[in-house]
Nucleic acid binder design. Structure first.
Length: 269
DNA sequence: CGCACCCCCTGCCGGC
DNA sequence: TGCCGGCAGGGGGTGC
C-alpha cells in the first residue's frame, strides 16, 4: 500500500494541517519501528506546521522551529485528520492535537511505521536515499549509470531505495509490465532502448497512480479517509494465473528476494 | 556486491 | 463454525 503514490496522496490530503499549531501530543503506543521517545513531544508541542514534504516513501512535516517530523507508514500506517472529539480506534498510536480543535492521528496495526522528530538534514533514514523517480534527477542517463554492470535482477534494483526512492513491490511489478521487461532480468543485460522504456514506464505508472489516489488493497485511506483507485488498474500485480490484459497469456507468479513477482511471459522479455 | 533468510507485528483468507 | 498456516504494501540485520 504505502509506496510513493500513496505517500504522495497522503501528503496532499494533509494540506489542512499546514498553519496549525500543535497544542499537545497524545502518545498511546511507543513501540513502533523505532521507539517513540519524549523527544517527539519536546520537539513538536508548541510548534506550527509550515510545510509538508515527501522524500521517497517518507513524509516530512516541517515545523516553525526548523525541526521536522519524519514519518514512514510501513505496511499498514495511516495519517488521518479528525475532530479532537473523535473516539479512539484500535491501533491509534499517536495523536497530534491542534489549537483549532482538529487532530492528526497516526494509526498502524502492524507497527512497522516510524515517527520521529529532529533536524531535517540529520535524518539518517534519508542520508542514502536515491533521487525521486518523478524528479529531473531521475534521467535516462542516471538509469543507465545505475544499471551498468549490475548483476541484480532489475526488479530488485527498482526497489532499492538507495538507487531510486519510493518504488515498492506493487509498482515495481506494474512498471516492469509497462516496460515489457521481466522482473528477473539482470540489470546489466538491458538494452538502451529497454532502459528508456523503463524510464518512461516508471514515470507514467507512478504519475497515473498518484492521479487515481494510489492503491487501496485492504484498508488504505488518505488523510481525509478517501480510498485510492489504482488497484482497479493493476495489469499484473496479484493477477497470477489470470489472462494477460494484452495477450491473454496466463500471468505468472514467481518469488524474487522474498517478494512476489507477477509478469506476462509473452509481453515481458 | 548481492542474495537468502531471519526478524519486527497484526489481520485476513483459504483450507480443512 | 472454528482453528491454523500462510501470506501481505515496509525496512533492517546477519551471514554466506
Amino acid at each position: 500500500m504505502p509506496e510513493l503514490p500513496e505517500v504522495e496522496t497522503v501528503r496532499r490530503s494533509l494540506a489542512p494541517i499546514v498553519g496549525q499549531t500543535i497544542e499537545a501530543l497524545d502518545v498511546r503506543e511507543r513501540r513502533l519501528r523505532r521507539r517513540v521517545t519524549s523527544d517527539l513531544s519536546k520537539r513538536t508541542i508548541g510548534q506550527r506546521i509550515i510545510r509538508l514534504d515527501r522524500c521517497g516513501k517518507y513524509l516530512l512535516i516541517h515545523l516553525s522551529s526548523g525541526d521536522a517530523v519524519l514519518a514512514h507508514l510501513g505496511m499498514s500506517g495511516t495519517f488521518t485528520i479528525v475532530p479532537v472529539s473523535t473516539p479512539l480506534e484500535p491501533h491509534d498510536h499517536l495523536r497530534f492535537l491542534f489549537t483549532n480543535g482538529s487532530a492528526l492521528v497516526f494509526n498502524d496495526p502492524r507497527r512497522f511505521g516510524l515517527v520521529l522528530a529532529g533536524r531535517p538534514e540529520a535524518f539518517e533514514e534519508l542520508a542514502h536515499m536515491g533521487p525521486d523517480p518523478l524528479s529531473n534527477e531521475f534521467s535516462p542517463a542516471l538509469l543507465r549509470q545505475m544499471t551498468r554492470g549490475r548483476k541484480r535482477p532489475v526488479k530488485n534494483l527498482l526497489m532499492d531505495q538507495r538507487l531510486v526512492a519510493g518504488i515498492g513491490n506493487i509498482y515495481a511489478n506494474e512498471i516492469l509490465f509497462e516496460a515489457g521487461v521481466r522482473p528477473s532480468r539482470q540489470a546489466r543485460n538491458l538494452r538502451l532502448a529497454e532502459l528508456d522504456l523503463l524510464h518512461t514506464a516508471t514515470r507514467r505508472v507512478l504519475a497515473e497512480a498518484i492521479a487515481t489516489g494510489g492503491s487501496s488493497i485492504s484498508d488504505y485511506r488518505d488523510g481525509s479517509g478517501q480510498p485510492g483507485y489504482f488497484q482497479l488498474r493493476f495489469r499484473v500485480y496479484d493477477r497470477g494465473g489470470q489472462p494477460c490484459l494484452n495477450c491473454a497469456t496466463l500471468v505468472r507468479r514467481a518469488v524474487h528476494a522474498g517478494r512476489s513477482s507477477f509478469y506476462c511471459p509473452k509481453c515481458q522479455r
